[in-house]
Design a protein around this nucleic acid. Structure first.
Lengths: 345, 345
DNA sequence: ATGAAAGCGCTAACAG
DNA sequence: CTGTTAGCGCTTTCAT
């Protein structure tokens, strides 16, 4: 009635536990005959090795962790996360490694969660939502917990890092809009203490040469709407808005439309992330796809390498693709296609 | 250099391992003095009990599992999942239980994943995406793995179940649209082998009394668009469409708008799920909010109860709320508000 | 090629 | 109230 153990299998196969263990791990030669007997017995008894016992013996959890400190509301509105997880799981599935997820509400809980990870829940972690100076970087190093940072972390760090160039697509977008005659281009950034928000905002400021039309949102639909309202009520409102994510872009442009502003005729808008809805809106939303699944895969295999003992490394994954769509079409339809636009297509 | 164990703490505190263990578990009286010494020593050494050792000793993982068999694309477009997870974590955080997540691609992998769960990764599982006849129900019973089914499962089952009434909001919606003069109301369902899709579709068919305008989508934006296109090209197209989720509703109505169909003037649309964007669209989308976070909390505490040895139970959570918004406003603005509408407001 | 036995770090009787 | 002593189920020397 109780689950079978390795001893049961050994007994049934007429061998010892060691033999069963090695038959599975392949860590030492086993005669074909006994191996067959062992496997048969195991299948017969429906034996599956206990992962806790295994974890204790080899001092490895065979799991990686992600601890997220987020407002449930933000989590729910994040299009990046599920796709990222899908990527993580894709490379995890090949080995027999599990993902343990912990969503916490406070810094204290976050520290506890990481300590629990080192204490045997996970062999390493992926760190998301990087801040420009993130306490977790020194904290995790000190914990000696293998970790990979997702995002272009600039502070001192000896941890592995999976970088993305957030600046380039922003520059391209600004250039593209300029080419279409836009002179007042606004940017609604995400919280500026996030490395990716900051990188996008900085690229924007450098490209337009002014902070006048830079605003800070919080990635939610509500803030997209609110900040858009503010921008549109300016004496001289922008003719184009770059949003730091699609959620804000969609909410913002819907708000503009509800006020009678025609998109892209009177206002061009672009997002970031390529939400699954963006291509299906009216007009379809210009955005930057960032292939979260791929980044999940890269981060995971990097982490597994760290765990296996390889030295931490920084890798850059070139995954941003500009998706030019209807929401940034020419303000007036008589604008000829610019060369730049052709190039992007 | 190696992580401290309970023995190190015991030695430092001048007691035995048993005392340290009990000081933490409270499983037997410990004098205040020694307890203090123990805690001091533990803190001094930064000791955190090894979860694998603990799991082996108490035969419990202190973790629950969710295994998901989904296309990454569907995962990414699912607004339900992240919110649900947030709810799960909320009640998990109070106890020190972790969530292990596994996304798999095949039935075989799914079985393996569940077997790994019983084998020590998790003490119980939450089952999502229920099919009308789901092999996992007998499978998990046989595995003797505590499990709670999320959704109104009708087949034979002795597992706990967290139910939601999907039918009522659909009936209400149909009634509401009827009250506004709609006579051709279509429904774009999700895959009909899912219990929730089926329940919604059945309620729809009962309410309108015909399957003529029933279609099956797959919850993605692409299918929302495609099926909407088909419906709109009918000789006698519907004047209202009920979608089984907001993703399809948004894609579908955007498509309609891009074809010049005015919403709600010429076509009323409603979704299901209350995506974070829905209230911010133009027009705002009428939908049914289903409080995924709350259902996550309920399912989790139900599962923890099962794990604690309570007998499995079926609970119904009354969490659907109709959100009437602009996308279902009167076809002609001279329609007086119906009484029903007032009641819903 | 296989067996015997000693842990991995914790909990839980069983004594005292 | 606290110490001793077996395990939990697996891996891994060390023998043979």
């Amino acid at each position: 009635m109780t689950r079978p153990t390795i001893s049961d299998v050994a007994r049934a196969a007429g061998v010892t536990k060691a033999t069963v263990s090695h038959a599975y791990s392949g860590n030492r030669p086993i005669s074909a005959a006994t191996r067959t007997r062992v496997f048969a017995a195991a299948k017969e008894l429906h034996w599956v090795p206990s992962s806790s016992a295994r974890a204790l013996a080899i001092r490895r959890a065979n799991a990686i962790g992600i601890v997220l400190r987020r407002d449930p509301a933000i989590l729910a509105s994040d299009t990046f996360f599920p796709a990222f997880i899908a990527g993580v799981e894709q490379t995890l599935a090949e080995r027999e490694v599990a993902l343990v997820l912990q969503v916490v509400g406070s810094r204290a809980a976050e520290e506890r969660a990481y300590r629990a990870m080192v204490a045997g829940r996970a062999d390493g972690v992926i760190v998301l939502d990087l801040h420009r100076e993130d306490w977790r970087v020194p904290f995790l190093s000190q914990l000696r917990l293998p970790a990979v940072l997702l995002g272009a972390y600039d502070g001192p760090s000896t941890l592995s890092c999976v970088r993305t160039d957030d600046a380039e697509p922003v520059r391209d977008l600004v250039e593209y809009l300029r080419g279409r005659g836009h002179r007042r281009i606004a940017h609604i950034a995400g919280p500026l203490d996030y490395v990716h928000s900051y990188a996008r905002a900085r690229a924007y400021v450098q490209a337009v040469g002014s902070r006048e039309l830079l605003r800070e949102g919080d990635f939610t639909a509500g803030s997209g709407r609110a900040v858009t309202a503010e921008l549109l009520s300016l004496p001289e409102p922008p003719t184009a808005i770059l949003y730091a994510n699609d959620t804000m872009a969609i909410a913002g442009s819907s708000y503009a439309q509800s006020r009678g502003v025609r998109i892209p005729g009177e206002l061009a808008v672009a997002g970031f992330d390529d939400d699954h809805l963006s291509a299906h809106l009216s007009p379809p939303l210009t955005t930057v796809s960032t292939d979260p699944a791929r980044r999940g895969r890269v981060a995971t295999s990097r982490l597994l390498a760290d765990i296996a003992g390889e030295p931490p490394t920084s890798v850059t994954v070139d995954c941003t693709v500009l998706r030019l769509r209807g929401s940034t079409d020419a303000p007036a339809s008589d604008h000829p296609r610019s060369e730049l636009e052709e190039e992007f297509r």
